[in-house]
Design a protein around this nucleic acid. Structure first.
Lengths: 351, 351
DNA sequence: TTGTACGCGTTATCAC
DNA sequence: GTGATAACGCGTACAA
């Protein structure tokens, strides 16, 4: 049923190589034959066999996306973090004529994780890999770092950080900015609720928090630093434990956490921003749906995926040397949850 | 750097074919040589080249996942519908040693859509395709239906429904069950807020609604049927327009819509379920986070993806004939938003 | 400018 | 049981 180069060649009255040249836009082919060959190709709706081409060129034009995460984090997360990342990756990839292979796994424990990573590192289908969540992909990184495989991680990895290419945001600076904003507004007793201790994003945000506090000469009570998950549940639980400490502000290191914080504060009858200022992180769509609207750090998630992909493509083309480490900038989005905008300001904004 | 069959053969002192037989677990090989060859394979950490194998077998062991949706729907949706579907697909695929190729597209208009679908239908990389959202993939279906390409859609397609394989839920029955529940509780003036008019899921839910109403001898005011999108915004807008009509119940054809409905009712001071009963659809995690908790139809999204994949695999293996159409069952999850459980019942449940 | 011949790494069909 | 040898469909030096 399917034709091949040979068939087209015969129909066009030329050799197989000439057809190949035409298809690959090789310069050395006369306009006449080029025209003639294209004609036949169009007529026959011929499309070269990708697989054969891969075998011959040793290039697949495929990028692998690896999500080494437990299922729940991927699909039950209202923040759509991974989907957004994937969107950014796929966009750039498709645009550059790359296809994307999706590896979802790690849902099981130990054994499963093992075989999942083995599968990826042995399946040489992709020209390069994007690892979403460096912390979760740690075993895979350890496996890949000593091979010629090309990959870039999202997040700075905990280990091998100097040897691997990664794209992340400037978490330290971002957190610092968020906390400085609170301090400028007169807040002094500021807590931080963040994600896992072993996640570098989470970790760096704590560093930024500490830097801002120290720079302002504010002492930090150890109880003010709470680790958990980047979800609403953690926000609720942490805020409850923080309630008796007499704080005047909370830096929630993700909007999901902030959602839980706001909910708990509402239930406890604590007014935001009057009694407690809250600043989030991520700038999710949900951040504008809360009352009061959430002041937060804009996190260019999609752009992170896109950038990582462009970088990976660069590594594949050989146009940039390995390793590459990039920190994307973020910025503060001021809304209502910190009290920076009073009623008058709001009126002006809307006027 | 990378070895091939020939190299292993030389090292094991046998021929290339024998090595191939060992790898593919062919019976016709003596235990002795089998053992010897395995030894070498292990030592050299040899893994056969997938691409070459694909070329020879004419099978890729790759499944394509096509999301012909505008970007926003994929990544900004808190319901995580597509990610959940993808999860179900990837799980089954990986389990059966298939990789998944992800096609995200249709973000642009016309032209882009065209080239996106062309790219997919010409890229013969996948052994089969799963099209998420038949309504959005309509042009692609039209393109594929007359080719030997194997594919299954999620949702019943609007056209070619008899000729294509699809997996969906029994929307008519589900909607009917939801509305019957409201009727049994004494509600009479029941509205439905649903998704796009051209979406078959959306359409079928209206059919089920009408059947239930008719079976109960209840007249339906045309204004009670509102089409929109499967999101919170639609819920809010539609509910506002419904408010003056003196209803006593609303069937929101998605939990996202129900969220908007509940919010609008709260703002309007309408008590749920006393003044207005609300039943949703999907049974998202968010349905238990509302006050009152949402009575809703459980929608096995993940299972839908998994089933579609198993079906597609069957088509590929040739073990089932084309086309196959399957309706997955759903069930009603009774919580608080319809008043079926009073305070006493709740106490008993928790006791 | 065009054609020949070989290589990419497997699987599959034969003989032996 | 085992080993040549021919596909699979394409890219590409090299020769013409």
């Amino acid at each position: 049923m399917n034709l091949n180069l040979e068939d087209i060649a015969r129909l066009a009255g030329v050799s197989r190589s000439t057809v190949s040249r035409v298809i690959n836009h090789h310069p050395n082919v006369s306009p006449a034959t080029r025209e003639k060959v294209w004609q036949v190709i169009q007529e026959q709706k011929f499309h070269p066999n990708q697989i054969a081409r891969m075998l011959a060129t040793q290039r697949t034009q495929i990028l692998g996306i690896v999500v080494s995460q437990t299922a729940a984090v991927f699909f039950d997360d209202p923040s759509a973090y991974f989907p957004t990342l994937i969107q950014g990756i796929a966009e750039v990839a498709n645009q550059q004529n790359y296809s994307t292979l999706l590896w979802l796994g790690g849902s099981g424990e130990g054994e499963n994780h093992e075989s999942f990573h083995r599968q990826i590192s042995h399946n040489h289908l992709a020209d390069g890999l994007v690892l979403l969540s460096a912390s979760a992909s740690h075993p895979l990184i350890a496996r890949l770092v000593d091979t010629p495989a090309l990959f870039v991680t999202i997040e700075r990895p905990r280990h091998f950080a100097e040897r691997v290419s990664y794209v992340t945001i400037d978490n330290v600076q971002a957190a610092r900015t968020a906390v400085e904003h609170l301090i400028q507004l007169g807040r002094r007793k500021i807590a931080i609720i963040t994600g896992p201790l072993l996640n570098t994003d989470s970790h760096d945000r704590v560093i930024g928090y500490q830097q801002a506090m120290e720079a302002a000469g504010l002492a930090v009570d150890p109880r003010w630093i709470v680790y958990g998950e980047f979800n609403t549940d953690t926000g609720q639980r942490a805020m409850k434990s923080l309630l008796p400490l007499g704080l005047d502000a909370v830096f929630a290191a993700s909007d999901q956490i902030a959602l839980g914080v706001l909910q708990t504060l509402r239930e406890a009858g604590v007014c935001v921003p009057q009694d407690m200022a809250v600043v989030g992180f991520d700038d999710l769509p949900a951040a504008t749906a809360t009352t009061p609207q959430l002041t937060t750090i804009h996190h260019p998630i999609r752009e992170k995926g896109a950038y990582a992909t462009r970088l990976l493509l660069g590594l594949i083309e050989g146009s940039v040397p390995e390793p590459q480490q990039v920190l994307l900038p973020t910025h503060l989005v001021i809304r209502q949850s910190c009290g920076a905008l009073n009623a008058q300001d709001m009126a002006n904004l809307h006027g």
